[in-house]
Simulated scan of single mutants.
Amino acid sequence: MKTSAWIFMLSVGFFFPIAFVYGYLTDFDELVGFPAILLVGGMTLMIGVFLWLREKKSPPLASDDLDAEIEDEHYEYGFYSPWSWWPILLCAGAALTFVGVAVGWWIMPFGGVLAVVGLVGLVYEYDRGAHAH
């Protein structure tokens, strides 16, 4: 966590000067880029401060130890369905919805229905049928 905090805090030192260079090169007439780069710098500052404060209250992570082994990370990654086809349907629906934004709004409802069917199928996959708990 300490490394992540340093990375975010160092990126603040990049975004703030770049914002002013960008503003100077555009004579501060461009009303989107300068404030947007400043906001990105502010957001990285907030994340860096949060990680820095959180690092003081939590035990050291294995990623902060230079002599750590891979098995020292002991996260719970969750349960994933190994033979499920529902994520493919869900991704196809999301892709079709985003294609609808780019190509034509009339495609979005078809993608939305497909995505909802895939999401409901994925959520309730282990509540019925052969894999019911």
Rank of each mutant, 00 (worst) to 15 (best):
F28N: 03
Y75I: 11
M46Q: 07
W86Y: 10
Y75M: 11
E73M: 14
A62S: 03
D64A: 01
I37A: 04
E55D: 15
E30Y: 01
D29V: 08
L31T: 14
Y80D: 11
R54Y: 13
V49K: 09
L61I: 03
G33M: 09
I70N: 08
G48D: 02
V40Y: 05
L31S: 15
E71W: 00
G42F: 10
G78I: 00
W86M: 09
P87V: 07
F28P: 10
A36T: 14
S58T: 14
E55N: 11
Y80T: 12
M46N: 06
W85R: 13
I88A: 14
P82L: 04
R54K: 14
G42H: 04
W85Q: 09
H74Q: 08
F79D: 15
F28D: 09
W83A: 06
D67W: 07
L39E: 04
L90P: 07
G41N: 03
I47P: 05
P60N: 12
D72C: 01
L51D: 09
E73Q: 12
I70D: 11
M46C: 15
L25G: 09
A68P: 02
S81P: 14
V40L: 10
L61Q: 04
L89N: 12
V32L: 12
R54E: 14
P87A: 03
P35C: 03
E76K: 03
P60A: 12
G42I: 08
S84F: 02
G48V: 01
L66T: 07
E76Q: 09
L89D: 12
M43K: 06
M43C: 12
F50Q: 03
G33F: 02
L38Q: 09
E76Y: 06
G78H: 04
W52T: 01
G42M: 11
D29K: 10
L25P: 05
I37H: 00
W83T: 11
A36Y: 10
F34S: 00
D65V: 03
Y80V: 09
L51Y: 14
E69W: 00
V40P: 00
L25H: 12
E73A: 15
L38H: 09
W52L: 06
G23F: 05
G23H: 01
G41R: 02
L45S: 02
T44Y: 09
S58K: 13
L66N: 05
A62E: 01
I47T: 08
E55R: 07
Y22D: 00
E55Y: 06
L89H: 12
F79V: 10
S81E: 10
F28R: 04
S84D: 08
D67H: 11
Y24F: 08
I37C: 00
T44M: 10
P87Q: 06
P60D: 10
W85P: 10
Y80I: 14
D72T: 02
P87F: 05
E71I: 03
E30W: 00
H74I: 06
E30A: 08
A68L: 00
Y24L: 05
E76C: 07
E30S: 07
L61W: 06
F79E: 13
V49I: 15
P82K: 13
E71S: 10
G42C: 13
E69A: 02
E71A: 08
L25R: 09
K56V: 11
E71K: 02
L51F: 15
T44L: 10
L31R: 15
L53R: 15
E71V: 04
L51E: 12
I88H: 13
F50L: 07
H74V: 01
F28E: 04
P35Y: 04
S58R: 14
L90F: 11
W86R: 04
G23C: 01
L61P: 04
D65G: 01
